[in-house]
Each structure stands twice: as structure tokens, then as C-alpha cells.
Amino acid sequence: LHIEINVNGLRIELHNVSEELAERIREILEKVDDREEARRLAEELIK
């Protein structure tokens, strides 16, 4: 499954994740104000 999410102008592509996991990642990242911090957090979440 390939999912693309957009959060605060940051486009993140997720591969091989469930829709539920992608939604949780999006919800978490929406709470982060700083774009660079959101990017770093996204990288950690999808490892």
C-alpha cells in the first residue's frame, strides 16, 4: 500500500503501511508546529 500524506506543507510518502498507521502518523505530525521537526519525527516513525 502506498499512501501520501500532507502535513503543514510537508509531503510524506509511506510505503507498505496500513491506512490506520498512516492516519496515526498524520495525526501525530499535525501536532508538531516546526516543519523540520515534523520531518525528523516522520523519519523516526517509519523506520
Results as ranks from 00 to 15, higher is better:
40 R>E: 06
6 N>C: 09
32 V>F: 11
37 E>A: 09
36 E>Q: 07
40 R>S: 07
34 D>H: 03
20 E>I: 07
12 I>H: 02
37 E>D: 07
27 E>D: 13
18 S>R: 04
21 L>Q: 09
16 N>V: 06
6 N>E: 15
46 I>C: 09
19 E>T: 12
33 D>F: 13
6 N>R: 04
13 E>V: 13
20 E>S: 10
27 E>F: 08
18 S>T: 15
6 N>D: 14
31 K>N: 14
21 L>R: 02
11 R>P: 05
2 H>R: 09
34 D>M: 02
32 V>R: 03
43 E>F: 13
4 E>P: 03
39 R>L: 15
23 E>D: 14
25 I>R: 00
33 D>Q: 14
17 V>A: 11
9 G>L: 01
7 V>K: 04
21 L>K: 02
9 G>Y: 01
46 I>W: 07
20 E>W: 12
16 N>R: 03
5 I>N: 02
9 G>K: 01
44 E>D: 11
5 I>E: 02
38 A>S: 04
31 K>L: 12
14 L>N: 00
3 I>C: 02
15 H>W: 15
47 K>M: 13
46 I>G: 02
22 A>H: 04
36 E>D: 14
43 E>W: 13
7 V>C: 05
23 E>S: 10
27 E>Y: 08
42 A>M: 15
17 V>T: 06
13 E>R: 04
35 R>A: 14
24 R>N: 06
44 E>A: 10
38 A>L: 12
18 S>E: 05
41 L>H: 03
40 R>Y: 05
39 R>T: 11
39 R>M: 15
44 E>T: 05
7 V>E: 05
47 K>C: 04
12 I>Y: 12
45 L>G: 00
15 H>Q: 10
37 E>Y: 06
13 E>Q: 09
9 G>E: 03
10 L>K: 02
9 G>W: 01
28 I>V: 09
30 E>V: 11
8 N>P: 06
20 E>L: 07
13 E>P: 08
10 L>F: 14
4 E>T: 15
30 E>G: 08
14 L>R: 00
47 K>N: 14
15 H>Y: 11
43 E>G: 04
8 N>F: 01
32 V>G: 06
36 E>F: 06
8 N>W: 01
43 E>Y: 14
36 E>A: 07
25 I>D: 00
29 L>I: 07
32 V>S: 07
34 D>R: 02
46 I>E: 02
31 K>V: 08
46 I>R: 02
40 R>F: 06
14 L>I: 09
24 R>W: 08
19 E>A: 15
45 L>M: 11
37 E>P: 00
47 K>G: 12
12 I>T: 02
14 L>A: 06
44 E>Q: 11
12 I>S: 01
41 L>Y: 04
42 A>L: 15
47 K>L: 14
14 L>S: 01
18 S>C: 03
43 E>P: 00
15 H>T: 10
2 H>M: 14
26 R>L: 10
17 V>M: 10
42 A>S: 06
39 R>D: 03
1 L>T: 13
18 S>G: 07
43 E>D: 12
28 I>P: 00
44 E>V: 07
29 L>H: 01
25 I>C: 00
41 L>R: 06
38 A>P: 00
29 L>R: 00
1 L>K: 11
12 I>K: 00
41 L>C: 03
24 R>Q: 14
28 I>Y: 04
6 N>M: 12
20 E>G: 07
39 R>A: 13
28 I>T: 06
26 R>Y: 10
36 E>P: 02
46 I>T: 06
17 V>F: 09
39 R>V: 14
20 E>N: 06
27 E>G: 06
34 D>L: 03
32 V>N: 08
30 E>Q: 12
33 D>E: 15
11 R>I: 15
5 I>S: 02
16 N>C: 07
14 L>E: 00
41 L>E: 03
4 E>H: 11
15 H>G: 06
12 I>G: 01
21 L>N: 03
26 R>Q: 08
46 I>H: 02
15 H>V: 11
11 R>E: 06
4 E>K: 05
22 A>D: 01
14 L>C: 05
7 V>M: 08
36 E>S: 07
2 H>L: 11
13 E>Y: 11
13 E>C: 08
17 V>Q: 04
18 S>Q: 05
40 R>K: 12
21 L>M: 12
32 V>Y: 13
3 I>V: 12
13 E>G: 02
33 D>W: 13
39 R>Q: 12
2 H>D: 12
35 R>T: 11
43 E>N: 09
7 V>F: 11
12 I>M: 09
37 E>L: 11
7 V>S: 07
10 L>G: 03
47 K>I: 13
6 N>H: 13
41 L>N: 01
26 R>V: 08
7 V>Q: 06
29 L>V: 05
37 E>M: 07
6 N>T: 12
43 E>I: 13
43 E>M: 14
25 I>S: 00
5 I>F: 07
14 L>D: 01
3 I>S: 05
31 K>D: 09
23 E>C: 07
39 R>G: 06
25 I>F: 05
10 L>T: 12
11 R>S: 13
32 V>M: 11
41 L>M: 12
46 I>P: 00
17 V>E: 03
18 S>K: 05
43 E>H: 09
22 A>S: 05
15 H>I: 12
3 I>K: 05
41 L>S: 01
39 R>W: 15
9 G>P: 02
45 L>D: 00
13 E>K: 04
43 E>C: 07
14 L>T: 02
44 E>R: 02
37 E>F: 05
35 R>P: 15
22 A>R: 05
19 E>L: 15
22 A>Q: 05
46 I>Q: 04
27 E>T: 07
46 I>S: 05
10 L>S: 05
32 V>C: 03
8 N>Y: 00
6 N>G: 05
36 E>V: 08
28 I>N: 01
9 G>A: 02
39 R>S: 09
5 I>T: 02
12 I>L: 13
30 E>R: 11
26 R>A: 07
34 D>C: 01
23 E>K: 12
35 R>H: 15
47 K>Q: 15
24 R>A: 13
20 E>M: 07
4 E>N: 12
44 E>M: 08
24 R>G: 05
8 N>M: 02
26 R>G: 02
36 E>Y: 06
18 S>P: 12
27 E>V: 08
23 E>N: 13
12 I>N: 01
7 V>W: 11
39 R>K: 14
19 E>Q: 15
2 H>F: 06
24 R>H: 09
1 L>M: 14
28 I>E: 03
40 R>W: 07
27 E>K: 10
35 R>F: 10
8 N>V: 04
8 N>T: 04
42 A>K: 01
45 L>S: 02
27 E>H: 09
47 K>T: 14
3 I>M: 12
17 V>H: 04
34 D>F: 03
25 I>A: 01
20 E>A: 12
42 A>C: 06
6 N>K: 05
